[in-house]
Amino acid sequence: MGDLFTLPVLLGILYSGIRLATPYLYAAIGETFVQNSGIFNLGVEGIMLMGAYVGFFVGMTTGSLWLGLLGAALVGLLMGLLMAVVSVTFKAEQGISGIGLHLFGMGLSSLLFKKTLGGVESISGFQPIKIPLLGDIPLLGDVLFNHNLLVYVAFLLVPIAAFVLYKTTFGLKVRSVGQNPQAADSLGINVAQIRYTTVCIGGTLAGIAGASLSIALINLFQENMTNGMGFIAVALVYFGSWRPGGVLVGALIFSFVNALQLWIQVKGINLPSDLAVMMPYVLTILALAFAVRRARQPAALSKPFERGEN
């Protein structure tokens, strides 16, 4: 075990953990907006896959990663819009429509992949940018301040989201719509409009989450490459008690433990590999049970708004 807690290992965990956390942050921060407005979007995984595919395909065919990123954001927005139509206008059962959206996105991304690319190809993604001064800090500089753009933006998103949710009128409207849509409605807030906006924000960020994998971190597209990340992202919103800061803590715990378990295996510590892979899941549950302060979920979460009811 002593072998495990050496400086290179700790730095390695920090570096891999930051990279692993990036897609979770985009997706989970987006879902935080969605759920704070009272909508439960379980289809994040499907949106991520579409974002990953479109980001990669556009990036590869146009040669511009920026266009790829834009494409991923747009397709995420469209998928979000679809979810909003189904869950806000048609007031559909949200858990199940999320599963529908997931199947749709997963299937469509694979279908398009097969028909347009036909096989796995790689791309040269967003390159690491070393931040001046900070990047020169011994040891930590390389680990913390030498990442690609999408990694930095993911972490910047946390304070921005917190600011928007807690310090702006828009954020206030979002939270009031999620807590008590009837009261918000009587105050003249357009419940449907707010919910459309948040679900579209969530979709856009989920699309970017997918692109962060396909054109910034792993730089290729393969069918079903998110492998359940979208569902973990939804779980992280619950872990974070619907606050961006809490989501960050959750995403980091999950990712650091995931990086740690890989090091445990690489260092040849005598633990069956399957049990090592289990660790982040077990610890996330335990952390929530014992360490994290609990908060009440948005009162109207996953309840469609019917004017004049109650």
Partner: peptide, 24 residues
């Protein structure tokens, strides 16, 4: 050094595993 990701399709964790091996 040997590691397993516990999945046939987890591309992301496989990438992290490679990072870890290189760091080691």
């Amino acid at each position: 050094n040997i590691s397993y990701t516990g999945s046939f399709s987890d591309v992301s964790l496989m990438a992290a595993a490679a990072e870890t091996h290189i760091a080691a």
